[in-house]
Design a protein around this nucleic acid. Structure first.
Lengths: 212, 212
DNA sequence: TGATTTACATACAGACATGTATGTTTAGTT
DNA sequence: AACTAAACATACATGTCTGTATGTAAATCA
């Protein structure tokens, strides 16, 4: 077929990735054939194999096109707990608003059996998780330094709890299409973070004992 | 082939289910062929098709053979928060001990794209989740009645949080083979439940104000 | 004690999916 | 302007999986 301009070829590649995401989300990564992806993109398998080495390569491209969901503000935040809350809620809002992100996470959390070539992808996912974990822990430690974390909370354990909560939350949010849970999850996040915050009275008491 | 006795046939069926679980867990539900399952069970596909209608039917059997992970003690528990903690920790301990249960949940949480015939299975899973949610909420409400829940906690939201936490916890526990997180998750559960419990001093203060 | 199922094994046909090889224009390059 | 290689489409060979049809020997039954 006629050779396309570089820019057009790049657009073709992008289109394939976008369509692959939709196809993967609706039919499952393994069930989806590259022919389906190609048809959805308005090309043939030839184009797909030209741009990608195979299904797993295409899958990586899908992941790469959608950046990470959460992004916490710089660690030197004045109110790290609010930063945490904003990060988590931001992720949820993005899921609700951005269909592409929704499809990507649908694929990763519900439509992929991490097997064979995809086994490493799971390890990648867990690495991303560890990164989330480190950032969260940093936020909690920051909160400790500022005397904002409630008494008796170990930041390391708290971070792990937030991590698990986040992971489960995403899965449930995605699966609960029309089940009435989605609307409650944002409230849940606020409650979660609030429970970690040292209460006003406790703060006042602590200040009082620090500067008598 | 020679006809088997009824008891033997039942054992064959059981063996197929058990082997299917292992094969599904290692190769993924979609990637695994019924021939692999049959070979692993020491039979041919004929036997598999005799006992089951197909892969999805077999998958249901796998789920059914492994009962639910958590089982909370009767709702009239003296200390409902401890019941919650014991239930959650019990689930984790079972995962660690019982390889079959581990494989089953590995399959359901990581090795299955809930698509086509399996789309209903996801709905089933979410139904089971709602049941978990109801039970947890009942426990928290019980705790409220007994004055054991910390102040300012909404039992409904708290239950949803525990549910999400549990869901994420299982996924992460399973994926973190050798990553060092598993050993910390039990502590996490204790911290989670403890943070919901009204502190001793608060309890004493509340008692004091109740019976002056 | 036949007759009838049962509990499988074997055989077969059809449907796809994958990977690669090859063809065909045209955008870049020199 | 000629040449090269990009950006695909088309064609093909191969393997694998599924579902079903058929065979068969023993367990169960009347």
């Amino acid at each position: 077929m006629a050779r396309k301009t570089k820019a057009e070829a790049a657009r073709t590649r992008d289109r394939i990735v976008s369509c692959a995401r939709r196809v993967f989300a609706r039919r499952g990564v393994n069930m989806a054939s590259l022919d389906e992806v190609a048809r959805a993109s308005g090309v043939t398998r030839g184009a797909v194999y030209w741009h990608f080495n195979g299904k797993s390569d295409l899958f990586m491209a899908v992941r790469a096109q959608t950046g990470p969901l959460v992004s916490f503000e710089p660690p030197r935040e004045k109110d790290p707990l609010e930063a945490l809350e904003r990060g988590l809620i931001g992720a949820l809002r993005r899921l609700a608003r951005d269909e592409a992100a929704r499809d990507t996470y649908e694929v990763m959390l519900w439509r992929c059996e991490y097997v064979g070539e995809f086994a490493d992808v799971r390890r990648d996912l867990m690495e991303a998780g560890k990164s989330f974990l480190r950032q969260t822990e940093a936020l909690y430690r920051n909160a400790v330094r500022r005397g904002m974390l409630a008494a008796g909370i170990d930041p390391r354990t708290a971070a792990l709890e937030t991590f698990c909560l986040y992971a489960g939350m995403l899965k449930i949010w995605l699966a609960d299409e029309g089940g009435g849970l989605r609307s409650r999850i944002e409230k849940l996040i606020r409650a979660h973070v609030a429970s970690r915050r040292r209460s006003r009275v406790a703060t006042r008491r602590a200040r009082g004992s620090m500067k008598p």
